[in-house]
Computed example of a mutant assay.
Amino acid sequence: METDASLAVLAALAHSTRLDAFRLLVRHEPDGLSTGQLVEASGLTQSTFSTHLAVLVKAGLVLPEKRGRQQIQRANIDALKGLMLFLAKDCCQGRAELCEPLVAELTCC
């Protein structure tokens, strides 16, 4: 992931409603959730939540998928992985021992 794409993803996640929605979708992978379920979980109106959802989709964090009459939203795990790698890749500067605690925490749970 390049710097501009990373900034777009970080900006999209820099709002509590969008961050909560994305984290909820990650927990519901690979099935995703309907837009209605996300709206209900957010406690917002449909129109207000749709604005937030559009930001997540534009940033590539959420992948909308039509299933029958429902619009299902799924977390783009590849985008999450790309962001995490972008943030962590240069932190070690060739010294793997600096990132080992992070990797251990991610793999333990």
Rank of each mutant, 00 (worst) to 15 (best):
S47N: 12
K89N: 12
H52R: 06
Q71C: 10
G36D: 14
L61Q: 07
R18K: 08
P64S: 05
S34M: 02
L10M: 14
R74M: 04
R69V: 08
L24S: 08
A54G: 08
H28P: 02
S50W: 10
K89E: 13
P64M: 02
P30V: 06
A54T: 14
E2Y: 07
A12I: 07
F22M: 15
E40H: 15
A96T: 14
T45C: 10
D78Y: 00
L33G: 00
V55N: 00
Q73N: 11
G36M: 05
A104I: 03
E40D: 15
P30C: 01
L25S: 01
Q37G: 06
C91W: 08
T48W: 02
F22A: 11
R74H: 10
C109W: 08
Q71W: 04
E29V: 09
E65I: 07
T51F: 06
I77M: 03
A88C: 14
G94F: 04
C99D: 04
S42G: 08
F86S: 13
H52N: 15
Q46I: 12
K89Y: 12
L106P: 07
L53G: 01
A11Q: 10
R27T: 12
Q37D: 09
M1R: 01
L7Q: 14
S6C: 12
R18T: 02
L44T: 10
L13K: 02
Q73G: 01
A14D: 15
V26R: 04
L106A: 13
T51Y: 09
C99K: 04
H52I: 02
T48P: 02
T51R: 12
D90E: 10
Q93W: 05
E100L: 09
A59E: 03
G43Q: 05
D20V: 05
E97R: 07
T48R: 09
T17F: 05
G43W: 03
L87M: 11
R74I: 06
Q93V: 07
S50G: 15
M84I: 14
L56G: 10
A8C: 09
A5L: 09
E29C: 08
A75D: 01
S6R: 11
Q71A: 13
E2A: 13
R67T: 11
L13G: 03
A41S: 15
D4F: 07
L83A: 07
Q73K: 03
T17D: 08
K81V: 14
R67Q: 15
D78C: 00
A8R: 04
S50N: 15
H28T: 04
A79G: 03
L38S: 03
L19W: 02
Q73F: 11
A14P: 09
R74L: 02
R69C: 03
C92E: 09
Q93N: 13
Q73H: 10
G68H: 10
F22K: 00
V55Q: 02
R27W: 08
F49C: 07
L7N: 12
F86P: 11
A96S: 13
L7Y: 06
V62P: 00
A5N: 01
A21M: 09
L102D: 03
Q70V: 05
C109L: 12
P30R: 01
R18P: 03
A88Y: 05
K66D: 08
E65D: 14
A79N: 00
R27A: 12
D31L: 07
V62I: 15
V55G: 00
L63S: 11
L87G: 06
E65L: 07
L98E: 15
G32Q: 05
H15V: 10
Q70I: 04
D78M: 02
E97F: 06
D20E: 11
F49E: 00
